Simulated scan of single mutants.
Amino acid sequence: MSNSINLQKLAELVGGKLAAGSAERLITGLNSITDAVEGEVTFLGNVRYLPALKTTRATAALVPDDQDISEAPPDLALIRVKNPTLAFSSVIRFFGPPSVAFVPGVHETAVVANDVLFDPQRVSIGPNAVIESGVVIGAGCAIHAGAFIGRGVKLGTDCVIHANAVIKDRCVLGNRVVLHSGSVIGSDGFGYELVKGRHQKIDQVGIVQIDDDVEIGSCTTIDRARFGRTWIGEGSKIDNLVQIGHNCVIGKHCIIVSQTGISGSTRLGNYVTMGGQVGVAGHLEIGDQVMFLAKSGVTKNVLQPGAYTGYPARPLMEGRKMLSLPARIPELIERVRELEKKLAALEGGATKE
């Protein structure tokens, strides 16, 4: 048993209150609400899992301080917190593997241009990383194995560039930016003109600017601007497998989920949320605090805050109604057939008379 903690200290760890259970009872691990067993702690992060809480085998659960948990098992210890999902992060850190220590220095196989500006005592550069001329690297940055940093790139402090991520020429990253493996920042925008039957490439000479505290998932691509900048605002979080086109502007603290595609020159406000597989046409304006549910298709400007769904995306209730209509087609076809039969019978009777 590597770690254990009693319920009272666990409640203190997560900033909660022990509402049921013995303060000295030991917790030795953590797990999901459905998989937890005796000695483990779990959490109720969504009311949809309330039925699962009734049958969980966990010893303890973090639950919302305003949620009725009267039907929980009698031997389940309850720790009430304001936000169980967030509080459970402290539990993960307590029981989880230790963080990998930051080890400054440049690996002997890394290729670093002579004029790169950085402090080797305050930066970590891993095996086979390539850092080209004119790059500036802030203190506390970790550049992992095989990463590529193109000419003239600027990294702020405490950035993490994971293995095989790519930042192409002249792009600018703020502080505490995280790029996961396989992401590509600053590939050419997708711009062509049809000339005499052939697609002629249009030069893409702008940059990508990524502001402080942005995290970008694996295999996400953000295209450089044709001119000017493609801009990702402070605190935004972008999932794996997202495509952001040239000259897009993503506002502050946005959430963009996997397989979303945003076409060029579209501008998002602040606190915009896009579910998985949302598709956004180009040159659109999306207002602050707009939420698109998964698989929405955005074809026109959406400026009013609120939730939208469907293709084309409509306000939530209207969109759900439109999405439900195709399921009624077989029923409607059958009704039309019955009406046609009745009409034919009436017309036949009228002809005989």
Rank of each mutant, 00 (worst) to 15 (best):
E132M: 13
V177T: 06
K82L: 12
Q67E: 08
E108G: 06
F94N: 01
V63T: 08
V103Q: 06
L155Q: 04
N175W: 12
D169P: 05
I125S: 10
N128G: 09
R122Y: 04
V172M: 14
T85R: 08
D68S: 10
F102L: 05
I161V: 13
L155R: 01
V123L: 01
A147K: 03
N114C: 09
A139K: 13
S89M: 14
N114E: 12
P120W: 09
G174R: 03
L155P: 06
F94V: 03
K168I: 02
Q121P: 00
R176T: 03
S99Q: 15
T85H: 07
G134L: 00
R170N: 08
E71F: 04
I131G: 03
R93C: 02
V112A: 01
F95Q: 13
H144V: 04
P127Q: 01
I149L: 01
P104T: 06
L86F: 09
G150Q: 04
D75C: 12
Q67W: 08
G105I: 01
A113T: 05
T157Q: 14
V111I: 06
G140P: 13
A87Y: 15
L78N: 02
F148K: 07
F95D: 08
A165C: 12
F88K: 09
V177W: 05
I92T: 07
P104E: 10
G174E: 14
A147R: 04
F94D: 06
K168T: 03
G140N: 14
P127Y: 07
A139V: 07
V153S: 11
N175C: 11
A147I: 11
V172P: 03
H107L: 05
V166I: 05
V166W: 03
D115S: 06
R122T: 15
H162F: 10
G96F: 02
V153N: 05
G150P: 02
P98V: 01
R80W: 05
S89G: 15
S124F: 08
G152S: 09
R170W: 04
T157G: 10
F148Q: 00
A129W: 09
F95T: 06
I137C: 08
G146I: 03
L173A: 14
V136P: 04
V160S: 07
I143H: 03
V103M: 02
G126D: 10
I79N: 01
K154Y: 07
P64G: 12
I149H: 13
R176K: 14
N83H: 14
A87E: 09
P84D: 02
D115C: 11
L117N: 07
P84N: 10
D169W: 00
F95K: 05
G150A: 09
A142R: 15
S70E: 02
L76G: 00
D66A: 14
G138D: 05
P73E: 00
R80Y: 10
S90C: 05
I131T: 09
